[in-house]
Design a protein around this nucleic acid. Structure first.
Lengths: 231, 231
DNA sequence: AATTATTTGTGCGTATGTATC
DNA sequence: GGATACATACGCACAAATAAT
């Protein structure tokens, strides 16, 4: 029996008042102390509930000014970024990957600048094809900063994908993520089994570790890919 | 003087230990009580810090089992979903919109099913073109469940976009969001000023209010659109 | 421009609940 | 069942920010 936490009661009651327009957008709601008194809970409990609602974007809180219902409730979706293998397996398919090429190579200028690396940094270029149930799922083109991940040169990328190896061995803390639509060029069309020019979802990700930039990757998904989120 | 909250000290120290591999992935970390003692804080303070790290996906906590460093630190990006107007203005452009068409019409079957509505629900179909600095930015095709939003039939959609009107007048609480790549058909190509078949980012969103489904919308962005996130 | 009052933010000590080993 | 570790809750206190004076 999982009991319903008290702060959730407060949370839900506040949410109800927001959605029922009992508290209208932009309006000042009662203070924590008043709510605690009214709902019969400690102020800390009310605080926890209102803090969650503020993090969700439904309330705006400022000291002394009080708590207001957000005017334009900015919804934030939480997009979790799984390993490709898990992404594939979550769709009920079997994942496999093939290492297409792997070599020392300097980054192209735009990639180097996106990561903020010096011109002569030694980097490795890796190209991988990911399969779901034997069919092409996504093409991965990746550059790795060898200085940031010393062991990478010896990583057995035929057994474990670069993606997965890096997640396990290179601690990272921030980065950027971009999704865009692009037409398949001849090479991609051949690898992914689609027509040249077919619209593809493309993910570009730059990853930085606590000390140095780690990797840059472009994933081109086979046609049919959808990025799905619940709000 | 903005003081650094104590729970942040604990948070950062724990993060440091994770990133420095002092606490290795999968390993059990000391209990709350031990950490509180070691770092000189109350257990509640440590709890707050570890809770944040768990929400960020870096730790996994289970009663009695203790707290472990996540094996594959699932990073979660927070994608905020702004009004199109704000999205355009954030890029430093001026937003305008043109109402292309508006009429009562039944939803196509797939849309109706995605929203979970009965066959004869009265709905309105709205088509809008969004402009950034006078150039096409996105095409919007929308169906609205009139039963859920009674006032919508009278909304002045030439002055305020349907998007914005609904955010202000129709409280919603959950929904789904899908991004995909699609080729421009002849109609879209004309409206967005691109070649037929050009790869476009397409957003499909289903929105439910607390009581009933509210709206379904497909946004087709003009070429060049990128969905950007920081992790 | 300085002061005060108010409201949220944080922190502690303690107690109890709950899941799970 | 018992023990353990996290989860929640309360009451109190003080800090920080800032609207109001």
């Amino acid at each position: 029996m999982t009991r319903r936490p008290a702060w959730r009661e407060v949370h839900d009651e506040a949410l109800r008042r927001i959605q029922s327009r009992e508290w209208t957008p932009g309006a000042l709601i009662p203070g924590e102390a008043a709510l605690a008194d009214e709902l019969g809970h400690a102020r800390a409990t009310v605080n926890r509930a209102l803090r969650e609602l503020a993090e969700a974007g439904l309330l705006e809180r400022r000291r002394k000014a009080g708590t207001r219902v957000a005017l334009a409730p900015q919804r934030r979706a939480r997009l979790s970024i799984p390993l490709i293998r898990e992404e594939v397996e979550a769709r009920g398919a079997r994942h496999a990957h093939g290492l297409l090429s792997r070599r020392s190579a300097p980054m192209p200028e735009p990639v180097r600048l996106a990561l903020g690396l010096a011109p002569d940094t030694p980097t490795e270029r890796v190209e991988t094809l990911h399969l779901a149930d034997g069919r092409p799922y996504a093409h991965e083109l990746r550059w790795v900063n060898l200085a940031a991940v010393p062991g990478f040169a010896e990583a057995p990328l035929d057994t474990i994908s670069a993606n997965e190896w890096l997640v396990r061995h290179a601690p990272f803390d921030r980065g950027t993520l971009d999704y865009a639509a692009a037409g398949a060029d001849a090479g991609l069309a051949g690898l992914l089994g689609c027509a040249e020019g077919a619209p593809l979802m493309v993910l570009e990700r730059a990853t930085h570790g606590p000390a140095a930039p780690v990797t840059w990757v472009r994933l081109s998904y086979a046609p049919g890919f959808r990025l799905h989120m619940d709000i």
